[in-house]
Nucleic acid binder design. Structure first.
Lengths: 219, 219
DNA sequence: TTTAAAATTTAGGCAACTCTAAAATATTAT
DNA sequence: ATAATATTTTAGAGTTGCCTAAATTTTAAA
């Protein structure tokens, strides 16, 4: 079993690899988890000893297969807990991150399997990110932003590009929630604003907003 | 906020106070949480500095009001999580303790309040122990063992006196679960065994078992 | 009431994880 | 190519929570 600190490093390295390509630098990690570079160096040595990462002094790190799988298991737990918090406990999706950050370190295979079943094996979390299965596999998560859609097409709102608190609050205010079916009614050529429609209401969003809303199953 | 270790000590001191009266000894605590007496001494000093316990060298400890409330909040979380695991995730009640032991340390008032609501504000956990409310208050938990019941009376099975794994397994095998309505059909004077009835079946239990099953709302 | 046994505390140390400050290495700009 | 700058590592140290071994205090027994 790995410590919470180790799990956090692995998860961080995993997401940084995705974002910036392989070979993650010490400073990048330090920035992400708000520690000092020297602390990161210490931990990287420890992870390298356990063969969870490949680390060469001054050259950055990347995950081994074991490291990647371990990271994915933590991410799986994080996203399942987030789904639980939103779907079952009625949290808003911008409130759940810090809580899931703690829950993801609870150790029990049985717990996470049963939670998965309880939630009916969701494939995407409330932010629209894919939930890895027990083997670390995820579905292809082909999403399209509203900006890429044509008039008359519709899809299911599954995620955002910008997950800043302010943007998430904007969505709440406008009554746009994950899982909503959204249809593009009209596109205004003048300012490329979008007229969209949900089950309950219609509204106009700016092009800026349109490129931050991700939809699935667009037809 | 208190560390996990601190919370565990407070919880342990609370339950030992209940079981053995005030002024809990170092060795008692050490035995309960499987550490050495010297480690306990270290921690007691720390807790005393934070005014969570009153501690006099060689004289044992007892909780302050703050300490007691903090302990009760941890116990509240533990029991709510146990209820969740059994009621929603279909765990058996003898499997949930170790998982709840981890979940009880997750920090979030909102989380525990929403969990409480999701479970419909239960008053007793799966073991029949009372769940403190946010202020540390519990319902009077008047229970009666089968041994104390008369022929023809019935009640709701809410807890056990002996919560050893082997006894809990026995109950599972006999298909006796928390929440079952149990009626006393007959008492055999010869060996004082009890003939009891649930919604689904009848069985005979020894006097030994009868004094370990607690029922509520007995009429 | 003195002594032997049991319980508790102190002293010194270890492991995990963090930090600051200084040293080493890499990168960039001239 | 070399100097200046930025990045990374090392060295040394602090905190939490645990340990063992030795010293102290309490308790129970003779």
């Amino acid at each position: 079993m790995y410590s919470q600190a180790e799990e956090n490093y692995l998860k961080t390295i995993y997401t940084l690899e995705k974002e910036f390509g392989n070979e993650v630098s010490t400073n990048l990690i330090a920035g992400k988890i708000k520690t000092k570079a020297s602390s990161v160096t210490d931990m990287l040595k420890k992870l390298a000893n356990k063969e969870l990462v490949v680390y060469k002094k001054y050259q950055g790190v990347y995950l081994t297969e074991t490291g990647r799988l371990t990271a994915l298991k933590v991410i799986r737990k994080h996203r399942l807990w987030e789904s639980f918090l939103v779907q079952k406990l009625q949290f808003n999706w911008h409130e759940v991150h810090d809580i899931a950050e703690q829950l993801e370190h609870v150790k029990s295979e049985a717990l996470i399997d049963k939670l998965d079943a309880f939630l009916k094996f969701p494939k995407l979390d409330p932010h629209g990110d894919p939930i890895p299965d027990a083997h670390g596999r995820t579905i292809l998560n082909k999403t399209v932003t509203i900006k890429e859609m044509k008039i008359g097409s519709a899809g299911v709102f599954v995620g955002v590009r910008d997950s800043s608190a302010s943007f998430l609050k904007y969505l709440n205010k406008k009554n746009l929630a994950l899982g909503d079916k959204i249809k593009v009614i009209d596109i205004e050529p003048f300012d490329s604003s979008y007229h969209i429609e949900t089950k309950t209401h219609r509204l106009v969003i700016t092009s800026n907003v349109a490129e931050n809303l991700c939809l699935k199953n667009v037809k």
